[in-house]
Design a protein around this nucleic acid. Structure first.
Ligand code: ATP
Length: 860
DNA sequence: CTTTCGTATTTTTTT
DNA sequence: AATACGAAAG
């Protein structure tokens, strides 16, 4: 028997080796669930199971990539390469592209992210002449998302009177109209949003039995990690694909279900044994990750939840250090204390920075931490928040590519027709949209095919539009003959994006330029990888025709990537900063959890309901159990929020840990608000409330979907928050900002398993297109090689607002402090049109060129 | 049509 | 604090 199987404990081994039939592996954190899944796949391959018949779904692309790499080391040859492995979204996006003609989509359909979706909702609301006060785009988008996650199409929605009654009750009676229009627009644009990927997969499998059969036969073995966080749409996909052979293995931990805000249902894992009768149940009880202290402390916390499957969980590792709790007066002090502590830990414990993570509840908390780390020259990397792909310049650039690839993508056109400013305003855009609608064309088709005069685009505006159309047209024609990177560079230049950013010479524009270069670089890396893989497979067979890697292919891969999926070589040995949500499934030697305050963690938004609070508790459980050797918890008594100082008290979760596991140098105050006693002893299980998880023993739950929700007052909506950042070469992903969907509305009720057929929109444009390159490769690490950037040079002087505040005292050698980069020394000064360009050496943060006007430097 | 300035609003969490 | 949006000036 292979070594990797030998290394498993008996239960784990059982779970790995018995790969026929259905299996449910349910176990606490760190018990080796993911490892079992990995070994199981490797074992299957070693027993002769064909890799391409295995479908393994993970929670993130990164997890998939790591699992694939691990398997590659366990089995011979390139077998692991043919595994179908990825997130639900990326795997089914690939399948949808292959089958797109059946649903009337082009195979190169665009994938809209949440921001694109929100814009489209906004547009739909506007076109229906509804007020965006009543119909808040965020709320509407969240409700649409919820409907889709429950497989409720607009048609099904229309047939469902209780949903519509809910809308009326919430004073959004015309919600359905928006939903319909939104869906129509997506279809006309040849685009799917995240939720459509799952919804349309379901429609495909429901309406095309032969397609369903094909995939049922192809995927003889299905494995799902983190099953407790699947939503209804994902659940139905698994049930359908697995019902023929029942070789379905799911892995999860109900105590780690933390994504209910996007429709995840713990019930999915609880009813697995009913869905797949005879499923073998494996319970893993030993935690191999953490010290006894951490495991025991985490158990204390999770015990407080009423609704759960009770599980044993013990650690045979050392007792380990007690969990330290750090108190600070302000968020700034908290960050400073953590930064010093990290520094000391790394120094004295002989560990790497990369063994350390700081976790927090909200992205907004990262800022203070960043500043503290930076000023101490502690290297860090930050995930989530405003990721690379959400930055304006990147989204603009991607919109150009999207339009070139998919001429029906009106959303992309609207985004960039006047970016950079070319004198095409709202009025003109409105006329184009009108003409497009009147002729049943997309907006780009309208501007490129219709006579400008007939649609009222005479004069200056008409010329500008014609010029724009010509540019896109030419780029579009180059597509089939031009290699992806070259075309990307061409797009970046001819669109004028590079030129305008070059012209501006502000820190922001420099940063934007770097990001665009980085994006172009990722095209190159992707291209090279594809070519290498093509060459690999070609050596076995005959000479492969040197296929041109088109930009289409890259675009399709990029749409579902997040910053976590990029392994940048420069990002090694850095402290990790991320939200607790993003940390699920990861592990670190030392974990710091910051901001353990009432109303922050647990979040204010979630405390209204027992369910919400229990989810926060699970989230805290996840946070604690990321730590292998030690955890440190911190809170601040005051914190800036919306530019205002707010005061908080220590989180109730701190007092839920048995003090024997804590190293507490002070009295832990009461978490309760004086007038809030009732909240500290929430009553569970409302009268008639059907939703209660199976008690220990029964392991089942009757209900899912329906009921159990209470309306909450003041459902919040959210908006986007963005922070511009200054350039810092090498550090690809900058901070941040939070952005988010929200719930707000009560549940959409029954996840009707019958849902209606998609309406047919415009016929598919171009049913060509290769299946997306697979396995999906994340874009590679950026080297410092800067793509040569052509474009307008800054001959002309930018209209300079006058500058120079507090002139004088700066000279070469002056020590200054920057809000982000910390302390540095000026090494060069240069006149720059109306301002002064400073080169400052910030030590670890690097050497930066800053404009005095913007840099807000403090002279020390 | 663009830029600029003032005001209102925002923060959970993410594929 | 930072952003997005709308109004008014250029
Ligand atoms: N039998 C074993 N022997 C030694 N180490 C093990 C064993 N099983 C698991 N581990 C280690 O325990 C750690 C946790 O494993 P893994 O990530 O698979 O757990 P998990 O159950 O998926 O955790 P989580 O639910 O928190 O994501 C890993 O570092 C893994 O290498």
């Amino acid at each position: 028997m292979s070594e990797y199987i030998q290394n498993l404990n008996p239960t784990q081994r059982d779970a790995a080796v018995n790969y026929q039939g259905a299996s449910l592996i349910i176990a606490g954190a760190g018990s080796g669930k993911t490892r079992v899944l990995t070994c199981r796949i490797a074992y299957m391959l070693s027993q002769g199971v064909q890799a391409h018949t295995v479908l393994a779904l993970t929670f993130t692309n990164k997890a998939a990539k790591e699992m694939r790499e691990r398997i590659a080391t366990l089995v011979p040859g390139g077998m692991s390469r043919s595994l179908w492995m990825g997130t639900f979204h990326s795997v089914f996006a690939r399948i949808l592209r292959a089958e797109s003609d059946k649903l009337g989509y082009p195979s190169s359909f665009t994938i809209y992210d949440s921001a694109d979706a929100k814009n489209l909702v906004k547009l739909a609301i506007k076109e229906l002449n509804l007020s965006d006060e009543t119909y808040k785009p965020n709320v509407v988008a969240a409700r649409i998302s919820k409907a889709k996650n429950n497989l409720v199409t607009p048609q099904a929605y229309e047939a469902n009177s209780s949903l519509q009654a809910e809308d009326r009750e919430q004073r959004i009676p015309q919600f359905l109209d928006i939903y319909k229009l939104y869906a129509r627009k997506c279809r006309e644009n040849g685009a799917m949003d995240f939720d459509d990927l799952l919804l349309n997969t379901n429609i495909l499998m429901r309406d095309f039995p032969e397609v369903l059969t094909k995939y049922q036969n192809q995927f003889r073995y299905i494995l799902v990690d983190e099953y407790q966080d699947t939503n209804f749409a994902q659940y139905v996909i698994i049930r359908r694909l697995g019902e023929l052979h029942g070789n379905v293995c799911v892995v999860g931990d109900d105590a780690q279900s933390i994504y209910s805000f996007r429709g995840a249902k713990i019930e999915n894992i609880l009813r697995f044994q009913q869905d797949f009768p005879g499923a073998k149940l494996f319970k893993l009880e030993q935690n191999y990750r953490s010290t006894q202290t951490i495991v025991n402390a985490a158990n204390c916390v999770i015990e407080k939840n009423q609704r759960q499957i009770r599980k044993k969980s013990f650690s045979a590792a050392d007792e380990g250090d007690p969990i330290r709790v750090i108190k600070a007066y302000t968020d700034k002090e908290e960050s400073a204390l953590l930064a010093s502590d990290i520094y000391t830990t790394v120094r004295t414990r002989g560990v790497q920075y990369s063994d350390v993570a700081v976790l927090y509840r909200t992205n907004a908390q990262s800022r203070a931490l960043e500043e503290a780390l930076r000023s101490r020259n502690i290297p860090y990397k930050i995930y989530g928040g405003m990721s690379f792909y959400q930055r304006k310049e990147i989204k603009d650039m991607l919109a150009y590519v999207r339009l070139v690839v998919n001429p029906r993508d009106d959303e992309a056109l609207r985004r960039i027709i006047n970016t950079p400013a070319r004198g095409i305003g709202d009025v003109t855009i409105g006329r184009i949209a009108g003409a497009a609608a009147a002729n049943g064309l997309s907006m780009w088709e309208a501007v490129s095919r219709l006579d400008p005069a007939t649609i009222g685009l005479a004069g200056a505006a008409g010329n500008k539009v014609a010029q724009f159309a010509k540019m896109i047209g030419e780029l579009s024609e180059m597509r089939s003959t031009t290699e992806a990177y070259t075309l990307g560079l061409e797009i970046a230049t001819r669109s004028g994006l590079i030129g305008t950013y070059k012209m501006q010479q502000t820190p922001e524009s420099i940063s934007a330029l770097e990001n665009i270069e980085e994006l172009l670089n990722s095209i190159r890396v992707y291209t090279e990888e594809q070519e290498r893989m093509a060459a690999d497979t070609a050596t076995e067979g005959e000479s492969a025709p040197q296929a041109l890697v088109q930009i289409d292919e890259w675009l399709q891969n990029v749409a579902l990537l997040t910053d976590m999926d990029n392994e940048n070589p420069e990002e090694r040995n850095k402290v990790t900063l991320m939200t607790v949500h993003s940390a699920k499934g990861l592990e670190f030697e030392y974990v710091y959890v910051a901001g353990l305050e009432e109303n922050l963690f647990p979040s204010m938004m979630s405390m209204g309901t027992p369910e919400g609070l229990e989810e926060e508790r699970r989230l805290f459980y996840v946070a604690l159990t990321r730590a292998k050797r030690a955890a440190v918890l911190s809170f601040a008594e005051s914190r800036f929020k919306w530019g205002e100082m707010t005061f908080g008290r220590p989180s109730r979760f701190l007092s839920e840990i048995d003090p024997q596991y804590l190293d507490l140098q002070f009295e832990l105050g009461d978490s309760r608000d004086s007038d809030e006693e009732a909240n500290s002893a929430p009553r569970y299980g409302r009268p008639g409330g059907p939703s209660r998880y199976g008690r220990p023993g029964t392991g089942s739950s009757q209900d899912y979907g329906q009921g159990g929700y209470r309306k909450r007052a003041g459902a919040p909506d959210t908006g986007a928050l963005r922070r511009t950042d200054t350039p810092s070469p090498g550090a690809r992903f900058r901070s941040l900002s939070a952005r988010g969907a929200t719930q707000g509305s009560p549940a959409t009720g029954s996840p009707a398993s019958r849902f209606s057929a998609p309406g047919t929109g415009r016929p598919a444009a171009r049913p060509s297109g290769p299946p997306a390159g697979y396995p999906p490769r994340p874009i590679g690490g950026a080297t410092s090689a800067s793509p040569h950037v052509t474009g307008a040079t800054n001959g002309s002087d930018p209209p300079g607002a006058s500058s120079s505040q507090g002139s004088g005292e700066m000279a070469v050698g002056t020590r200054v402090e920057h809000a982000k980069f910390g302390v540095g020394e000026i090494v060069a000064i240069e006149e720059w049109t109306s301002d002064v360009k400073l080169t400052v050496d910030f030590g670890a943060a690097g050497r930066k060129v800053l404009l005095k006007k913007f840099a807000k430097l403090q002279i020390l």
